[in-house]
């Protein structure tokens, strides 16, 4: 019960502090910009005939633009996951707001899970709006549909949840600022590790690939994005043997990486609960 009370409170907070409104307005601004860009690229630069060559070029461009849109959405989602949850435990412990809450007949684990659930709901809504918006715009203008949406989008969601859970775990132990540093530091590590891995794969350098894999184990966010991106790449483009999106996916993370991401998330939630349980408030 208390879990849902806290989860609802998290929603009310996001709405009262205008977080929902800001996310909604900026999300709409992003989608409008994306839609206009996509419309003019489609109308003015692509061939109009239906020959095999034209179809191939169009398919490549649509794939690229869809992936570019999802890449931006992915970044916005994880930024949102980190930003909304960074201050929640550290901030409430710092201000003392938490004192009147945890002295009620609730378990501390319920407080953590309630917040997690609230943020997970917020992220789901946001991702639904943004992925739905990008996919809808692309389909409305070009009748192009990226494959495996129901596999790719949940993987992006998993990535958002993972970052949010990591942030929550850090926020249960460290200050808000330290949490920001830790989360974005790890994200940057995964980002660079991902590039090292892809370049290593192109150059057939085993060491570089291994560095990338290790960095993905430390922080699986980038690997999850690559997997999602691979799933949603047009089969035609994939059959050409390369991915022309903003991400070069040469070395494709295996489905095991998705399972690892799920485990990573569970460990972070457990860590958040454990730290918060032990902490003097």
């Amino acid at each position: 019960m208390a879990v849902f009370v806290i989860a609802r409170l998290t929603f009310i907070e996001a709405s009262r502090r205008k977080i929902l409104l800001a996310a909604l307005l900026l999300g709409i601004a992003f989608l409008i910009l994306y839609g206009i860009g996509f419309y003019y690229i489609n109308r003015e630069t692509l061939p109009n005939d239906t020959g095999a060559g034209a179809t191939l070029i169009k398919n490549q461009v649509y794939n690229f633009l869809t992936m570019a849109g999802l890449y931006a959405v992915n970044f916005l989602t994880i930024a949102m996951g980190a930003l909304v949850s960074a201050d929640t435990l550290a901030g409430e412990i710092g201000s003392g707001t938490i004192q009147a809450v945890v002295t009620k007949p609730v378990r501390r684990v319920e407080v953590v899970l309630g917040k997690w659930l609230g943020f997970a709901g917020l992220l789901a809504l946001y991702l639904l709006m943004m992925v739905g918006g990008v996919m809808g715009i692309v389909y409305a203008i070009a009748r192009y549909q990226a494959p495996n949406l129901l596999i790719g989008a949940p993987i992006i969601y998993l990535e958002g949840l993972l970052i949010m859970s990591l942030t929550l775990a850090s926020s249960s132990t460290f200050s808000t600022l330290a949490t920001g540093g830790i989360v974005f530091g790890l994200y940057g590590l995964a980002f660079i590790g991902g590039f090292v891995e892809q370049i290593g794969a192109v150059l057939k350098n085993g060491t570089a690939v291994n560095i990338g894999i290790i960095s993905s184990l430390i922080m699986p966010s980038e690997a999850l994005l690559r997997r999602a991106s691979y799933e949603m790449t047009s089969p035609l483009v994939q059959s050409l043997g390369f991915n022309s999106g903003p991400l070069i996916v040469v070395s494709v993370p295996s489905p095991a990486m998705v399972v690892y991401g799920g485990l990573y998330l569970a460990v972070m939630v457990a860590l958040a609960i454990r730290q918060f349980n032990r902490r003097d408030l």
Partner: peptide, 28 residues
């Protein structure tokens, strides 16, 4: 048990009635 903390800070974006409802719900 009831508790009024010393440096009480509450979720200040709630209204007075909502605030009491929240804490009532936490009391079950």
């Amino acid at each position: 048990i009831g508790f009024l903390p010393e440096h009480f800070r509450f979720h200040d974006w709630l209204t007075a009635a909502e605030f009491l409802k929240l804490h009532g719900e936490l009391y079950g």
